[in-house]
Amino acid sequence: MATGFRIEIAPADGYAAALPELRAVREAVFVREQQVPAELELDAQDPLCRHALARDEQGRVIGTGRLTPERSLGRLAVHAEWRGRGVGEALLRALVTLAAELGWRELTLNAQTQTTGFYAREGFLPFGDGFVVAGIDHQPMRRLLDAVNPVESREAAVAALQGVVAGARRQLALYSRELDPGLLDRPEAVAALRRFATGGGQVRVLLQDPAAPQRAIAPLLNLGQRLTTAFEFRAIEEPVDRGYPSAYIVNDLGGWYFRALGHRFEGETRLDAPARARQLRALFDPVWERARPCSEYRALGI
């Protein structure tokens, strides 16, 4: 957690005492900044919710969020001057932890569409149709707690990838047929891998068909050309390895996204399952040793 603030969970019966501080943050963010009508922002659920508060070193509330009786997460707000300093992430993780402690198996939320990547990095996947509230586009998202999360759409696949990449410490292993058009060429996916690589991360990529992304000039090849010390590509040539039907990405802190059929987006993901992550690395590593370096990529000049 970043320094300069702390997170606290208000007591279940502490809404009245916390109300002035909660309202100060939420009115600043939602009502004045985002122009949400005040009568929509403060609803009848508030007294029934569990609230998290972020305080600065002087004890002033700089951010807040809540869990509703319907087992959803919402009203996550951080003062503008504190954004980008880890406050939102800390609030979100505190609320997810609280939901797990309460025995909830699933947590849902309605994300403003420009914030879906923020929630994806913490394991939330989009589902269902978007909608508009107070003129702002929203997307339902959910995360199963202490369980594998099904990936059922392309958008959920992009979110799953973002979560695994964001959860890595130093290493990512990616097993793909041909750099997964529709997934690894999405701007959100490329941006996530760029952030990881420029932050000192190492990405190993195993490909069954290295020629296909080369013909398509896949964005990830462009990224690999610019960040040659971060990306390494190898081609699978052994017949026993080329017959493997699945695809996956796995990090070094227990996060993974696995697709039984590598040409499809449907699969499973989880950010906190180190045993399964070790299994996938045990599959990846010997194939990596047998594969040949993609020397042709170094000569692309792109």
Rank of each mutant, 00 (worst) to 15 (best):
N110M: 01
D137I: 02
Q114T: 05
Y119S: 03
L91Y: 10
W104Y: 12
A100Q: 14
H138R: 08
D129H: 11
F124N: 04
A100D: 03
G86H: 10
A80I: 09
D129S: 04
T116C: 12
L98H: 09
V133D: 14
R93G: 10
A90N: 09
R121C: 09
G123D: 04
R142H: 05
Q114E: 07
R105F: 01
L95A: 04
G123T: 12
G84C: 06
G130F: 09
A100C: 01
G84M: 06
E89V: 12
I136L: 10
G135M: 10
F124P: 00
A99Y: 12
W82M: 04
L109D: 07
G103C: 05
T97F: 00
L125R: 14
V132M: 00
P140L: 02
A134M: 03
F127S: 02
T97W: 07
G86I: 13
V96S: 08
E106Q: 14
R142W: 02
W104V: 02
E122A: 15
P140V: 02
L92V: 14
P126L: 07
G128K: 08
P126K: 04
T115G: 00
G123K: 07
L109A: 04
T97L: 06
G88S: 14
Q112P: 06
Q112M: 08
T116H: 09
P126H: 11
A80S: 12
Q114A: 11
A99W: 02
A94R: 11
Y119D: 00
D129W: 01
V132Q: 03
T113M: 10
R121K: 15
